[in-house]
Design a protein around this nucleic acid. Structure first.
Lengths: 128, 128
DNA sequence: GTGGAACCTCACACCGGTGTCAACTGCAAG
DNA sequence: CTTGCAGTTGACACCGGTGTGAGGTTCCAC
């Protein structure tokens, strides 16, 4: 499939797809005329890449991580596992930040609503 | 207190403090010679601003939000409440995103660990 | 009154993913 | 063969918080 199709199928701009390729996140063959030709499996991968970007990973990290998807299990290295663990930890930290700020904002809101009531440590965790 | 002290006390660079002031996040008086003079209460505020940044708020949003901290409750407007509610909603959404990304990464990790097991929708939510 | 640290303003650079424009070429339908 | 859309590369801009440096001024301790 060509870049326009992939863009439409994955919901990512052609600009971004070229960027992904340039940075080794996706691969393509070329037609004799130089047009990119993508494998259908790239749709799924591009979507995942988007998720990883959304999670705050940078392209270099994703590039290191992606071999997990391609390589036969035997070749998966401890490096990748460490990378994964690291990213997971990062996200967990971020999650805690957000929780803390949610607490702050909720306290602020209660304060506003109650006109002066000082919410010391409000904000229980409602089910997600 | 002057900018260097505030920087040290809050752990934020003087550059950033000037930026915060420029964008209305903190205020200062000036000495006759033009040096910034910060109130001691700014330390706490700067720390909070940092947290809000960490949670992904942008300076403009923080600037709109901060009056909640200053204004006596009586003067708090519905606008602020709406803003608060909006940011809370945004953070909650972000939190859900992060949870989803954590799922993705955890699934990837399991896959790696299990050598080829295809994790379709893995990753239960372990207590935070 | 003087040295030097701390401050001032202004300006430019960076990161990294994406938008956008320019100038050019491939491909397929008429 | 022509037309025109879709593709190609390359370059520049943007966002927003921060680093950095130049060139000048203020403050304070000696």
């Amino acid at each position: 499939m060509r870049i326009g199709e992939l863009a439409e199928a994955s919901g990512v701009s052609t600009r971004s797809l070229r960027y992904y390729e340039e940075h080794g996140l996706i691969r393509s063959t070329r037609t004799p005329g130089g047009w990119r030709d993508f494998d259908g499996s790239m749709v799924e991968r591009v979507v995942m890449i988007q998720h990883l970007f959304a999670a705050g990973l940078r392209s270099a990290t994703i590039a290191e991580l992606l071999p997990c998807l391609d390589a036969p299990p035997a070749e998966r290295t401890g490096v990748m596992e460490r990378l994964l663990a690291q990213e997971i930890a990062r996200l967990q930290a971020k999650r805690r930040d957000i929780d803390r700020e949610l607490d702050t904002l909720r306290a602020l809101r209660e304060e506003t609503a109650l006109s002066g009531e000082v919410g010391t440590g409000a904000a229980a965790q409602p089910a997600r």
